[in-house]
Design a protein around this nucleic acid. Structure first.
Length: 231
DNA sequence: GCCAACGTTGGC
DNA sequence: GCCAACGTTGGC
């Protein structure tokens, strides 16, 4: 079974000055015709509602994206991709490949240019939020699903109807301090009892989802922790 | 379409 | 390294 977390992947050059000759860019712009969002009956009704009534309110939407900052081999390939790895990419941009979960994929497909996401470090010594990124390219086919040697190869996916998507993200900044999962969890539990912005945070209510929505209230609250003493 | 077995996620 | 949570698979 493929895992659903992200690993590094070369950035695709954009219409800009730099486009080094030798870079194997194989016109990979086979944009998929907007597919129906809900394969595999995911129980994402709240999000679907939000997505379908997009006009009007809800001008800003936020995300949380998990990635592993520590080395781990999968099919002999290191899937490590922490925020420092993103910073080290050309234009500090990378494609978010390797998502192999329908709910997470559907969220990827609703992401819009410019939307912000927390870069979350998972499966590591200190899990938590390390920084901020933004969406710089909306969903397109994840090429790793067709690569036999990729840890995320999916033999059931056909070129003319790709199953899996990815977006490109660009580094914005580190959070002023690392915001540990344990601290967020403390607030989550408190807010559950007394009410508060983190009371429904997907990080805790949908615990294994690698790409998840963050509300304005959650986003603001988490950022407010930057200037606060660690609890 | 149910649901048990199985495999993965990911914190601890 | 353990193992709880939970998504996926496949038999029926």
């Amino acid at each position: 079974m493929p895992r659903q977390r992200k690993r590094a992947c070369q950035d695709t050059p954009e219409p800009e000055t730099e486009a080094p000759a030798g870079k194997l860019v194989k016109a990979n712009k086979a944009e998929i015709p907007a597919e129906p969002l809900g394969e595999a009956k995911t129980s994402d009704s709240p999000e679907k509602n939000r997505a379908t009534k997009e006009s009007g309110n809800e001008t800003s939407r936020y995300w949380l994206m998990k990635s592993e900052p520590e080395s781990r081999l999968e099919k002999g390939i290191d899937v490590k991709f922490g925020i420092e790895d993103l910073k080290a990419q050309p234009r500090q941009t990378a494609c978010w490949d390797g998502v192999r979960n329908y709910q997470a994929r559907n969220f990827l497909r609703t992401m819009k240019l410019g939307e912000k996401a927390f870069f979350y470090h998972s499966n590591c010594k200190e899990p938590g939020i390390a920084g901020l990124v933004k969406i710089v390219k909306e969903a397109y086919p994840d090429h790793t699903q067709f690569e036999k040697d990729s840890p995320h190869y999916d033999p059931s996916s056909k070129k003319d109807n790709p199953k899996w998507s990815m977006v490109d993200v660009q580094f914005i900044r580190m959070t002023k301090r690392f915001i540990p999962l344990a601290e967020l969890k403390g607030y989550y539990h408190a807010h559950k009892d007394i009410g508060g912005p983190l009371q429904n945070m997907a990080l805790f209510t949908r615990q294994r989802l690698s790409v998840q929505p963050v509300t304005q209230g959650e986003f603001d609250f988490v950022l407010s922790l930057e200037d606060k003493k660690p609890s």
